[in-house]
Design a protein around this nucleic acid. Structure first.
Lengths: 351, 351
DNA sequence: GTGAAAGCGCTAACAA
DNA sequence: TTGTTAGCGCTTTCAC
């Protein structure tokens, strides 16, 4: 059997109250008592049962994180960010990956209803706003990553997608590309919509008409990026001057198709992604850097603040930043120095 | 306030015992009682408190996973594997990334002593065997990923590193490479040691002397791969016929150096990695595929078996498999068809 | 078949 | 300063 509070009491002769006080650093105990209790605690190798504590205190010191079923390296980074902040505040992290929308709701419900965690962090899910609002009723603080909630007090940590998408579009335009294709993310996803909108706006501002045919639907996955470009080319479409994918996974998919068909990047077409995942760096893909760790860390902090300080409606927006690499722009000759001006994150493996 | 068992009792008129029986599917209740109780449960939106249950049953339905502070995409995949098996068995997953060896022990101790989980999965840690054996005393089942424990009953799920490393080495030799450099993983790590040992053995069997100078120390990280090759070249070393890195991250690091210095892969030197992470596929790096998801899924299954069936000393060993891509061997002309024979996993983006 | 009651291991009034 | 005691919300003997 394992050691409980009572064992410590028996051995010290003190009551549970006193021992508990010592353990919780109450000032209402003699130095001597404290010493004696701690000695026995040490001796017996006693450790308070977290479970019992939970039941009494109605705290779990646990943050639950639910991720969508996407595979991209993006989530690892976010997870690490959450982990870092979480453990810094002496919280634990419970992780679950959803395996589809139904599963997502089941997961979320289970966590909330069983009160397995003090707060819930939801990432980039496509769940409708009113469903999310409904969750608020259960009283567990929820922090949304990647989606500010318009008319609600739900906390969120999101991205300034527009500035990044705008910078990328401007970069392409500045390098003389006009005929730019855009591979979208799943419709209805906040980030995807913002990125597309900013692309459109920027094009319009520059009096550069957007060819509707060149808006290719994607799903934020690598295969969907492949398909988008392949379908266009197979349908007899000309290779555009540039391709702007709403995330790196799709950019990588498109790059695969380009290489397989003998096209050179950036000579035949420029390519830009979004996120700045590890593979994008290795492949030399110009992209918009997203501070993934910070996204995670910030959301964990927000979640904890909601728990400990009962703060509500906290909304953060993190900046994004263009990172110029070989996949785009270098053929103008002076793009390299310019790249430095845009960002110092450009260490990469030339392709 | 939230709904408890008592609320259901009050509303139904039954005792806690009966309601609890209904909830746990006991056969000792009338169909009618069951119906009435469930109706009220539904009506009130009652959900049993997991915490209270835990305290009573001394089960947490939680698997704790501790990962090392490495960044590689490897872990994401393993984590997904664990998640899949975990949720399939109605368990939850608690994740923690260590931030160094001291931290690692602290994390592990906390989980074990507080009994936050029913079982613990440890991944690829460099913790000494006797420390691990010491942990067994606490009674929490531990499953090791990537390291079979020689003289102990600790469960493990590990890799057949040798077969994979052997296949890779043979592949390089068959393509006429003799002068092969090997970038090692951190000394003392099971996988790293096995891979190096198999490389050495295979070379010897083929009467191909291993040049000690060409064994470059690495740490399983991308920068360490860069450094290993850069140091050699900067020291005036000739580019070897081939480079075999003990993992993909380091292979990618070396590839970066090669490209920066204008070398072509595989023309100037062949390159082989280990793990088959996503980036390796995109970069067309020949590598040894490691079934990362299975590694995770299997370890979760083993962990759960230990909990539910009190099985002990389960040891699994998963196969690895050579995947031939562009970074190696294709310059012989007929390597492509051969690649098919070796593995069908070779879809990749030609570099 | 159902209920009363005793805990699981802890914390925190309240009393002394 | 320390002890007594009543729970937290559930499961499970043991009676009935």
């Amino acid at each position: 059997m394992h050691v409980t509070l009572k064992d410590v009491c028996k051995k010290t002769g003190f009551s549970t109250a006193t021992v508990s006080r010592v353990l919780n650093g109450s000032p209402l105990v003699t130095e001597d008592t404290k010493r004696r209790v701690l000695a026995v605690v040490e001796d017996l190798g006693y450790q308070p049962s977290h479970t019992a504590r939970m039941l009494k205190l109605k705290r779990t010191d646990m943050l639950a994180v639910v991720f969508p079923p996407l595979d991209v390296g993006f989530f690892t980074e976010v997870l690490r960010g959450i982990d870092a902040a979480t453990s810094e505040h002496n919280y634990h992290m419970m992780t679950a990956f959803s395996h589809g929308p139904e599963d997502e709701r089941k997961l979320i419900n289970r966590v909330i209803r069983e009160r397995r965690a003090d707060a819930l962090i939801l990432m980039n899910l496509t769940l409708p706003e009113n469903y999310l609002r409904g969750l608020a009723r259960y009283g567990m603080p929820i922090t949304l990553i990647d989606r500010p909630m318009a008319r609600s007090k739900m906390a969120s940590v999101s991205l300034d997608n527009r500035t990044g998408a705008r910078a990328a579009t401007v970069h392409l335009l500045d390098h003389g590309h006009r005929n730019i294709a855009f591979i979208t993310g799943p419709k209805g996803t906040y980030d995807a919509d913002e990125r597309l909108a900013a692309f459109r706006e920027t094009m319009q501002e520059r009096n550069c008409p957007v060819d509707r045919q060149l808006i290719w639907p994607g799903r934020f996955t690598e295969p969907s990026g492949r398909e988008a470009l392949a379908r266009w080319l197979d349908g007899g479409g000309d290779l555009p001057d540039a391709i702007f994918a709403a995330n790196d996974a799709m950019a990588i998919g498109a790059l695969g198709v380009l290489r397989e068909r003998g096209y050179d990047v950036p000579r035949d077409t420029a390519l830009v992604g979004f996120d700045d995942i590890e593979s994008a760096r290795y492949l030399g893909i110009t992209t918009v850097h997203v501070p993934m760790r910070e996204l995670g860390a910030k959301s964990a902090q927000v979640a904890i603040q909601q728990v400990t300080r009962h703060q509500t409606g906290i909304a953060h927006r993190l900046p994004t930043e263009l990172v110029v690499r070989a996949s785009c722009g270098t053929h103008t000759g002076n793009a390299a120095p310019r790249a430095q001006a845009v960002s110092t994150r450009s260490r990469n493996i030339p392709t």
